[in-house]
Each structure stands twice: as C-alpha cells, then as structure tokens.
C-alpha cells in the first residue's frame, strides 16, 4: 500500500516539474485579428465549429425559418464552401481547407444579416430606455435638491426646464412607438442633466455623518458590523486557516465572539439595546483580534 502511494507520488512529482509550458505560443502578441495557423488540429476544430454555425446555431435557425430565398441560397453557398473545405481536409491540404472555411463563415454571416433586423429586439430597447429614463429622472430630482440647497436661481431653472421639455418630448415619442427618436431625446436630456449637476456639485465634499435616531437603530448597525467582521474572517483568512496553529487561534476568538453575540441578542430581545450594543462591540472586537492574530492587520 505504501509503495503504491510512493510510486503515485513519484510520477506526480515528475510530471509537475517536467510539464512543458507552451512559452512560444503563450507569449505571442496577437495581431488583430489573430490568425489561425492552418494546422491539422486547428482546421479540424474549425470544421466542426463552422458546421455548427451552418446547421444548428441561432443564426442557422433564423435563416432556415425565414423563408427568405436569398438568405437560404446564401446559406447553401456557405454549405457548398464547407463541403469543399471537407474535401481539402481529407486530401490533407489544410491551408486550402482553412480558406474555404473562411469563405463559408463569411457567406453564412451574410445570410444571417439578410434575415436579421439588424436591430436590438424591441423588448431590450424598451428595457434599456426605461433604465436610462430612471437615471434621468433620479438625476433631475437630485438637480432640484442641489439647486434648492445652493439657491442657484434662474440659470439652473432654465436648464431644468430645457431638460424637462426633452424628457416630455421623449415620452410622447415613445407613446408614438418612435423608440429611437425617443431614446435620442432622452440621451440629450441625460447629457444636459449631467452637466448641470457637475456645474453645481463639482469640487464638493459631502459628509454622511453617523447618527442614530434610536438605540435600536444603533443596535442594527452593530449587528451589521458584527456580520461584516465574521464574513471578513472567511474572506481574509481562508488560506491562512489551513495552518493548524493559526486556525486554532482564530477559532478561539471566533467562539468567544459568537458567545458574546448570543448574549447581545438576548439583551436586545429584552429591549436592553444599550447593553446589547456594548456587548456586540465586544463581540466584534474579538473578531478583529481573530483577524489580527492571523497576521492581517485591519483597523477596528
């Protein structure tokens, strides 16, 4: 049994140090577009790929179902080119085979483009429109708030009116099913609102201070802080905990922290948030200790 493992290990060890690295290939600068060297394996794989493109791809389905005679004829041309490619491959002329495959692909792309709308589906366009509209609206709201805050006066009012007019026009166009025009107006509104906000807010620093309306709110914050540190242990120490001594130390602090957390939860359940906050803080400190004990210095 032991010998079995030793041999296995020996083979593995040998393989690992002797594994050839395809350096020359790996460091080759790809020119645009990277060109496949017509070697047997590459051409063989491309044959398979092109066959799928011609027979089963989403493009092939679309052409077959289209009833468009030109597109179907184009696909037939593509298939003919692929047949030639197969023949060249069989007679070991990989260069020629590769060229036919290139032709087949280009012909098939043409066929697909013939039946395609060349456009994004209506649903996607509408989805994109709605998301952009949501941005414009929320930025307009922000502009209004900033303008009030800064008492910016007439100039911004004029800008806002212009933006709102564009948004309104865009809505009308959308109702008339003119989605492209609607989007164009919306994008213009978007650019304008961006510029207006930048003019007012550029160079500012806003401070979101830490204030809690109630002790319960502060307790929720502490719970989140505790969860965060618990998750950080997984993120930061996953590798380090593979060392037994480190893992033991980390586990000790984590256990300590968990019992404090339970204590805090019990205190909160009784409505004593103030004590619960203090206990949670201690629990979080244990987690910080755990992280530091493994050699990752985090502030806390």
């Amino acid at each position: 049994m032991t010998r079995w493992f030793m041999i296995l290990f020996a083979v593995l060890a040998f393989l690992s140090v002797s594994a050839p690295v395809p350096k020359a290939f790996a460091e080759e600068e790809p020119k645009a577009p990277p060109v496949l060297k017509p070697k047997k394996a590459g051409v063989e794989s491309r044959l398979e790929n092109v066959k799928r493109l011609l027979e089963v791809s989403s493009g092939a389905d679309r052409v077959k179902a289209s009833g468009n005679a030109d597109a179907i004829a184009k696909r037939e041309e593509a298939i003919a080119a692929m047949v030639l490619a197969e023949e060249s491959f069989k007679s070991k002329d990989y260069k020629e085979s590769n060229e036919f495959l290139g032709q087949a692909t280009t012909l098939m792309f043409e066929a697909v483009r013939m039946v395609g709308t060349g456009n994004v589906s209506k649903e996607k366009k509408l989805d994109d429109y709605n998301r952009r509209a949501a941005s414009v609206n929320i930025l307009l709201e922000a502009l209004e708030r900033i303008s009030t805050e800064k008492k910016s006066g007439r100039e911004v009012e004029t800008q806002k009116d212009a933006i709102e007019a564009k948004v309104a026009l865009s809505k009308t166009l959308l109702e008339e099913e003119k989605i492209e025009e609607a989007r164009r107006e919306l994008d213009e509104a978007y650019e304008l609102v961006k510029v207006s906000i930048e003019e007012l807010r550029g160079g500012d620093t806003l401070i979101r201070s830490l204030e809690f309306a109630t002790k319960e709110e502060e307790y929720d914050y502490e719970i989140d802080r505790n969860d965060t540190h618990r998750m950080l242990i997984d993120v930061l120490l996953k590798e380090k905990r593979k060392t037994e001594s480190i893992d033991n130390m980390v586990s000790k602090f984590v256990t300590q922290s968990e019992s404090l957390r339970k204590e805090a939860e019990a205190q909160a359940a009784k409505g004593d948030y103030e004590t619960a906050i203090a206990t949670l803080d201690r629990s979080t400190k244990e987690l910080v200790r755990a992280i530091r004990s493994a050699g990752v210095y985090i502030p806390g």
């Binding site: 961006k194 510029v195 906000i197 930048e198 807010r201 550029g202 160079g203 500012d204 620093t205 806003l206 401070i207 979101r208 201070s209 830490l210 914050y221 502490e222 802080r225 803080d281 979080t284 502030p299 806390g300």
Partner: peptide
C-alpha cells in the same frame, strides 16, 4: 465628463 464630488461616510470605531 469627470465629476469631482467626494462622499465621506462616517463609520464606528477607530476604522
């Protein structure tokens, strides 16, 4: 269009 606005969020502890 680069927008120079800093948002500072205060957090608890010595963090």
């Amino acid at each position: 269009m680069v927008f120079d606005l800093n948002i500072v969020r205060e957090v608890k502890g010595s963090m």
